[in-house]
């Protein structure tokens, strides 16, 4: 200290003549007041800036964001619910339409079947009538044919008898033909 120049003395006891530190500048008592004074001012300014402006603003922004996110999630859930409802309604109408189509188809099928049955029955009846008629006609024809065969046979027999030169006896011929016809 004693050897220091006057220039160094005007600056500080903690700095030597060349401007270098003597020991640890941190332990230099001359500067403590200055540092503490400006530090306290700094801290007070920072505190007021933060507590009055910055922190409330950030808190409100964060709260607003949280609110927005919550709202958006709620809206999304609402939309999802609506979409699900719409899907359920769609499925229900689809099922209804299917059921209706089935009913209509069944009804049409039943109608056609009934009509068909009706027509079949009618046709069957007609066929039966026709068959009966035909049978009648056939039996008539058969009866008349037999009759004709008998007459023809008697005539033929009489003609043959006549051709053989005998007098045909109608009663005998008839008996013989009848006898023959019976088998």
């Amino acid at each position: 200290m004693a050897t220091e120049t006057t220039a160094a003395e005007t600056v500080s006891a903690c700095v030597d003549a060349g401007g270098s530190a003597v020991g640890m500048p941190q332990l230099c008592g001359d500067w403590i007041g200055n540092q503490v004074f400006w530090l306290i001012i700094t801290l007070v300014v920072i505190y007021f800036v933060l507590s009055r402006i910055a922190l409330p603003r950030i808190a409100s922004v964060l709260a607003e964001r949280q609110g927005t996110i919550t709202n958006d999630i709620a809206a999304a859930e609402e939309l999802k619910r609506k979409a699900e409802e719409a899907e359920a309604a769609y499925q229900k109408s689809l099922a209804d339409a299917r059921a209706e189509a089935q009913t209509i188809a069944q009804k049409a099928r039943d109608d056609i079947k009934a009509e068909l049955d009706d027509a079949m029955a009618k046709a069957d009846a007609e066929i039966a009538a026709k068959t009966a008629e035909s049978e009648q006609a056939i039996s008539e024809i058969r009866a008349s044919a037999l009759e004709h065969v008998e007459v023809v046979a008697k005539d033929t027999a009489a003609a043959i008898v006549q051709a053989l030169g005998a007098q045909p006896d109608e009663a005998r011929i008839a008996a013989a033909v009848d006898n023959r016809m019976k088998g």
């Binding site: 005007t10 500080s12 903690c14 530190a21 230099c28 001359d30 200055n34 540092q35």
Partner: peptide, 19 residues
């Protein structure tokens, strides 16, 4: 340790409380 020296921004005077 020179980087830790406190010195006045204006002039070469001693470092007072409000310098």
């Amino acid at each position: 340790m020179d980087q830790f020296i406190v010195k006045p921004l204006f002039g070469d005077g001693a470092v007072g409380m409000f310098t």
